[in-house]
Every structure is written in structure tokens, then in C-alpha cells.
Deep mutational scan, measured.
Amino acid sequence: PDLGLTQLFADPNLIENLKKNPKTSEMMKDPQLVAKLIGYKQNPQAIGQDLFTDPRLMTIMATLMGVDL
């Protein structure tokens, strides 16, 4: 199971919303991170391994779920 990750990354406004959010806007200036996020739309399971190697993803996930870290 993808634990709902498919829906989190399926939002067509995902990148724009993250660019507008004060907690994630600075991160979204990294083209490699943006490319990763776009890739998760097609393969949400890929985030599982990346969560352990890129701490920014935890902040992004929390933001998408509405959790304040």
C-alpha cells in the first residue's frame, strides 16, 4: 500500500502550492528536489527510500498533510 501518498502527490498544483508555502518555498528553488517531487506523481513508492536520505521530504510531507512540525 502507498499509505495515501498517491493522493498527496497527485495534486496538479503540488509544486506551485509548495512554492507559495513559507515552510517549503526555499526548498522549491532546488531543481533536483522539484524533479523528485514530479517523479513521485508517477511512482509514489519511490519516496519511501528518499525519506531516509533527504530530510526536506519529511517537511514537505508534513506540509502536504497539514501537520505543523
Score class of each variant (00 low, 15 high):
Pro1Trp: 02
Pro1Cys: 09
Asp2Arg: 01
Leu3Thr: 15
Leu3Ile: 14
Leu3Arg: 11
Leu3Tyr: 13
Leu3Gly: 13
Leu3Ala: 14
Gly4Phe: 09
Gly4Lys: 15
Leu5Met: 11
Gln7Leu: 09
Gln7Trp: 06
Gln7Ile: 14
Gln7Asp: 13
Gln7His: 14
Gln7Thr: 13
Phe9Lys: 01
Ala10Met: 12
Asp11Val: 03
Pro12Thr: 06
Asn13Ala: 14
Leu14Phe: 10
Ile15Pro: 01
Ile15Thr: 02
Asn17Trp: 15
Asn17Arg: 10
Lys19Ser: 11
Lys20Glu: 08
Asn21Glu: 05
Asn21Ile: 04
Ser25Asp: 04
Ser25Cys: 08
Ser25His: 13
Ser25Glu: 13
Glu26Ser: 07
Glu26Cys: 05
Met27Cys: 03
Met28Asp: 00
Met28Ser: 01
Lys29Ala: 09
Lys29Met: 09
Asp30Ile: 01
Pro31Asp: 10
Pro31Ile: 07
Gln32Ala: 14
Gln32Leu: 14
Leu33Thr: 02
Leu33Gly: 00
Val34Glu: 06
Val34Lys: 02
Val34Phe: 03
Ala35Gln: 13
Lys36Glu: 04
Lys36Arg: 11
Ile38Val: 08
Gly39Leu: 06
Gly39Ser: 15
Tyr40Asp: 01
Tyr40Ser: 01
Lys41Ser: 14
Lys41Glu: 05
Asn43Trp: 06
Asn43Glu: 06
Pro44His: 09
Pro44Tyr: 06
Gln45Glu: 15
Ala46Glu: 13
Ala46Val: 08
Ala46Arg: 05
Ile47Val: 15
Ile47Asn: 07
Gly48His: 15
Gly48Leu: 13
Gln49Leu: 11
Gln49His: 10
Asp50Leu: 05
Asp50Ser: 04
Phe52Thr: 13
Phe52Ala: 14
Phe52Met: 14
Phe52Gly: 11
Phe52Arg: 15
Thr53Arg: 09
Thr53Ile: 09
Pro55Ser: 10
Arg56Asn: 07
Leu57Lys: 00
Leu57Met: 10
Met58Glu: 10
Ile60Thr: 01
Met61Tyr: 15
Met61Trp: 15
Met61Gln: 02
Ala62Leu: 10
Ala62Thr: 11
Ala62Val: 10
Thr63Phe: 08
Leu64Arg: 01
Leu64Asn: 02
Met65Trp: 05
Gly66Met: 11
Val67Arg: 00
Val67Gly: 07
Val67Cys: 10
Asp68Lys: 01
Leu69Ile: 14
Leu69Lys: 02
